[in-house]
Amino acid sequence: MNAFISYSHKDQEYLDMLLKHLAQVKRERLLDTWTDHEIEAGGSFNDDISNSLEQAKIFIALLSPDYINSNYCYEKEFRKAQDLNEAGKLKIVPVVVEPCDWHNTPFADLKALPKDGKPVADWSNPNTAFLNVITEIRKLLSKKEEQADFLKPEGLRSSQNKYRAQKDFDSIEKMEFVKEAFNELRSKFTEYLKEVVEVEGIKAKILENGEDTFKAILVNKNKIGVETTLIVSTSGGGEQRRNMMMLSSATYFIKFEITGSKQGQSPRFFELDYDDFHLFWKEGGFNQRNNIQELDVSSIVDLIWEDWLHSVGIEF
């Protein structure tokens, strides 16, 4: 899949960081990127850019004052991308790298990255900001076929939509699915904790970050004695596995528990499930909300994170 990266040359350092963070995505052959660095000597600047935009399925714009000030980036590349977006041929992904007036541009109608459109320059660690960007881009690339039809080449749409092969999933595939999910979950919680401590009076500390257990404490010093501990674990082995089986009949699952809150909360589960075509998560037991049948890791993290923040009096 092709991604066209639109940027001001004055923001070269941000382009370099983005490309570094996209290295693994490109290594997995999920994405090919194009910038004007690809234009060869003697090439037609306008023609090459126009052709590359026509071939792209994703348009990544690195927003900054210099980008908005650039007539070429804003008036030509972005305008062309808007036309392709309206035709359903391309997805526009704004990445805010420096504080700028993007809220008063057409980009305001789009979901901006990093999280909440917070400029990369305002993050304490720019690598954390770009990790959030890459995570969201991966989510875009991994959308279900029916949700990401615009990402497929025109000639492949009809045949790919008509045929799906049934398959079985062995225990190793399921265990690897759980492991990958938990690794992503630990990474997201680590990222979220780095951001939430920027709120005045909020403290956090990771107590355990192992292969099948994540444990951290969250403190709201704005309220007296308000602190809770989050414990997230997977269907691992040994004594932990036996204890967890007493609470859930599922073989593969993610369990989470919030302790220390005045209300108290029983352990809750997300169970691994599957159909004839793919593996997925669902909320276990009697805790299913909004009749959600299938969940991805990002949805699980958001559900847990919301409950944890609420337990110490934080809303978002």
Rank of each mutant, 00 (worst) to 15 (best):
T234G: 03
F214L: 07
S248W: 04
E271L: 11
A250Q: 04
E38D: 13
E54C: 13
F256S: 11
S187M: 15
L131V: 08
N104L: 04
N243I: 07
V312E: 05
D170I: 07
F280A: 05
K152C: 10
L141F: 04
I224C: 10
N243K: 10
W34R: 01
D116R: 14
T213R: 14
R289K: 07
I304P: 05
K20Y: 11
K76W: 09
E136D: 15
D212P: 08
D47A: 09
K143A: 13
I60Q: 00
L63W: 03
A204C: 06
F280M: 09
Q293N: 12
H103E: 13
S158K: 13
Y274R: 10
M245W: 10
S50N: 14
S261F: 06
Q24K: 13
D11L: 06
Q160D: 09
L207S: 06
Y67S: 00
S187I: 09
L140N: 00
P119I: 00
D302K: 11
T190P: 06
L113G: 04
F269V: 03
W102P: 06
N46D: 14
W123P: 09
I258L: 12
E40T: 14
L18M: 05
N104E: 05
V196M: 08
A61W: 01
L141I: 08
E180F: 07
K144A: 14
E146L: 15
A108F: 08
F150G: 01
D149A: 13
K255T: 10
S124K: 13
N127P: 11
L303S: 14
F169R: 01
D109R: 15
Y192N: 12
I5T: 03
V25F: 12
N85I: 02
P65C: 12
F269R: 04
E145W: 08
L31Q: 02
V196E: 06
K203S: 11
I49D: 00
K162M: 10
S6W: 01
V297Q: 03
P153E: 15
P267Q: 02
V301H: 02
